[in-house]
Computed example of a mutant assay.
Amino acid sequence: MPIDVAKALAAPPRSTELAWDHKDVLLYHLGIGAGRPATGADELRYTLESRLHVLPTFATVAGGGLAAAGGLTAPGIEVDLAAVLHGGQRLEPHRPLPVRGRAVQTSRVAAVYDKGKAAVIVLRGEVADDDGPLWSSDTQIFVRGEGGFGGDRGPSQRSTPPSGAPDKTVDVPTREDQALLYRLSGDWNPLHADPEFAARAGFDRPILHGLCSYGIALKSVTDTLLGGDVGRIRAYSTRFAGVVFPGETLRVRMWTGADDTEGTGTAIRVAVTAVERDDAPVLADTVVEVNPPGPPTP
């Protein structure tokens, strides 16, 4: 069996050095569609180094996106990339990410679940620099055809959909070359660029990275409901419910007012769909946990 569950879970944590600077942050922001309009004051905080802040989802590509790649090269795991899809992602920034940084990522396979026709690998990562913890993450990797080994099915990732009309809705068009730009941040899976490889994986054409949609959605929430304050974001989780083809429009619906998991902030529920395919689901069970706004700057 390509996945040796016992070996994967018993493997010791692996440490990887990560490094990035403002160019990596700028490239990531452009990869998730920042800079439209190019001279917009709100967009310049994503695209101009003198005003730059870091959207927390940059953590998923810091150091070249080694977190997800590490899960596919862990001891006991040998899978075909054509069978791999991103199943879900949770990110917890412990403080605002610096524009330039050096850090150490410690990662391990936390679980391997048997979903019947597929396996789900959960990779847990902890990242810290000289000043302490920076972020924690759980990456769920869905591997088609690798289930049925009699293992634990794992917890359900599905929650009750939000009721009532959304408080805010934003439509975000993606570019036809969006995946080609986003992959420069480190995810080189040919599924997102090579038509022949995409066909072998069962798709009509290359698809957009799930983590690109993940970043687009958080940017929409940050700009629409948080006044651009990336420091308020405490956690962000999603389940990847469907694919996006570059050039499609993402509809980001947001519901506010729920309590977060710790009872000390607010949870924003989010749903993302593809407009051109009758609002086909893209991101589901999506929650952004935020802290209350801080005191105004004097």
Score class of each variant (00 low, 15 high):
residue 1 M to S: 15
residue 2 P to N: 09
residue 4 D to H: 13
residue 16 T to R: 14
residue 33 G to V: 00
residue 38 A to H: 11
residue 41 A to S: 14
residue 48 L to M: 13
residue 58 F to I: 12
residue 58 F to W: 12
residue 59 A to Q: 10
residue 60 T to R: 01
residue 61 V to I: 15
residue 80 D to S: 15
residue 93 P to I: 02
residue 94 H to R: 15
residue 102 R to N: 09
residue 103 A to R: 10
residue 112 V to C: 00
residue 112 V to S: 05
residue 116 G to K: 02
residue 130 D to T: 12
residue 134 L to I: 05
residue 137 S to E: 12
residue 137 S to Y: 03
residue 138 D to M: 00
residue 144 R to C: 08
residue 145 G to A: 02
residue 145 G to F: 05
residue 147 G to R: 01
residue 149 F to Y: 15
residue 155 P to S: 05
residue 156 S to T: 13
residue 163 S to I: 12
residue 164 G to S: 07
residue 170 V to W: 07
residue 178 Q to G: 00
residue 178 Q to F: 00
residue 187 D to T: 08
residue 189 N to S: 14
residue 198 A to V: 07
residue 198 A to T: 07
residue 203 F to N: 10
residue 210 G to F: 06
residue 216 I to C: 09
residue 221 V to I: 11
residue 224 T to G: 00
residue 224 T to K: 00
residue 232 R to D: 06
residue 238 T to L: 03
residue 239 R to W: 07
residue 242 G to C: 04
residue 243 V to M: 13
residue 243 V to I: 14
residue 245 F to I: 11
residue 251 R to F: 06
residue 256 T to E: 14
residue 257 G to D: 10
residue 268 I to V: 12
residue 276 E to G: 02
residue 280 A to H: 09
residue 286 T to I: 12
residue 293 P to F: 03
residue 295 P to A: 14
residue 298 P to H: 08
